[in-house]
């Protein structure tokens, strides 16, 4: 690889900025635009000669601003292999805050040029990842998923950790869950729970995840009018949990309903601490003085007289209802 010492001045239009080595494209931020407009270009971009013109190797955001400003571009010429061009781009962008999606985009470029061992031991540390860490393992495992998941990861809608449950799914199951990541932006916890619960519900019933999704009413939520993305994710996650723990979910729902009815109009809160392993319930109230204590005592009497206690205590005593 050679990088010329000389700095040349090139018209912005003469530089083609579509090389695959520019794997982290992005809009220039305001401070860069302000700096280039007021102070001028201090760092040259890197280009390689391509026919009559040039191909950009590093400096895409500077080039974009200078093109908008109608100014020529200071550049240094390089002669490099594809691998070297990728490394040049990586090193000139090393200071940027990296997301999992950006790391994956870089690995996708280098994946064509290096072995997995080289990616792990050479490229990963350049992106702040430990070769022994979980993230590089998950990133490399992502290559086994259909390409259709890549945009969701690179845009940040689908967290990297989701790759673990996704990798345990069949191709058909992976395609079945794909629509849930087309527009919704998932947190790590919600995505992992959603996928894990769907997958485990399927394995427990000797069905496919696709069947669980189709039978469980998941897809209509994606097109439900008036549902915010956050509410849609909450609804999907709740449905997935209900699919994973159907009997427990039914008991919990009924226990919460009865508890609310029993405690209605009081400051008491009722919970089942033993996950229905025993009939026990816990009643809690917070008081901060003689007045509230007196009211809580009266509330307790009222609660104790509720006719719903028998139903609550016997909720888990009967054998489980067959699943609907």
């Amino acid at each position: 690889m050679t990088v010329s010492d000389a700095v040349i001045l090139i018209p912005a239009q003469a530089i083609e900025a579509s090389s695959p080595c520019l794997f982290w494209p992005g809009e220039p931020d305001e401070s860069l635009a302000f700096s280039l407009a007021r102070l001028g270009q201090m760092e040259p971009v890197l280009v390689e000669r391509q026919g009559e013109g040039f191909s950009l190797v590093a400096g895409a955001r500077r080039l974009a601003v200078l093109t908008d400003l109608g100014r020529p571009v200071l550049a240094r010429e390089v002669e490099a292999t594809d691998l070297e061009k990728g490394l040049l781009y990586l090193s000139t962008n090393a200071a940027r805050p990296l997301t999992d999606g950006m790391r994956f985009a870089a690995l996708r470029y280098f994946h064509m040029l290096l072995t997995e061992s080289e990616l792990t031991n050479f490229v990963a540390p350049l992106m702040g990842l430990s070769p022994q860490g979980r993230d590089i393992r998950l990133l490399l495992a992502w290559f086994n998923l259909p390409d259709a998941f890549d945009p969701a990861l690179m845009s940040g809608r689908l967290p990297l950790a989701a790759g673990e449950p996704l990798s345990r799914m069949t191709r058909e199951e992976q395609e079945a869950v794909l629509p849930f990541f087309a527009t919704l932006a998932w947190s790590r916890g919600s995505a992992v729970n959603f996928l894990t619960w769907i997958l485990e519900a399927a394995r427990a019933r000797e069905m496919s995840a696709s069947e669980i999704l189709a039978q469980g009413g998941f897809y209509p939520i994606l097109s439900e009018e008036g549902l915010s993305p956050k509410d849609a994710i909450t609804a999907l996650t709740a449905l997935a949990r209900a699919a994973r723990y159907p009997a427990l979910f039914r008991l919990e729902t009924e226990a919460v309903r009865l508890g609310r009815e029993i405690c209605a109009g009081t400051a008491f809160r009722l919970t089942r601490p033993d996950q229905f392993e025993t009939p026990a319930v816990e009643l809690t109230v917070r008081v901060a003085g003689p007045g509230p204590l007196s009211r809580a005592t009266a509330d307790f009497q009222k609660i104790a007289a509720s006719p719903l206690w028998d139903r609550l205590f016997n909720l888990a005593e009967a054998p489980a209802e067959p699943e609907a």
């Binding site: 723990y245 009997a247 008991l251 229905f276 392993e277 025993t278 888990a316 054998p319 489980a320």
Partner: peptide, 14 residues
């Protein structure tokens, strides 16, 4: 679900 002894047990009604 977690049993009273800390081991995981099938939900009691099941």
């Amino acid at each position: 679900v977690p049993g009273l002894d800390g081991k995981m047990r099938l939900l009691r009604p099941l």
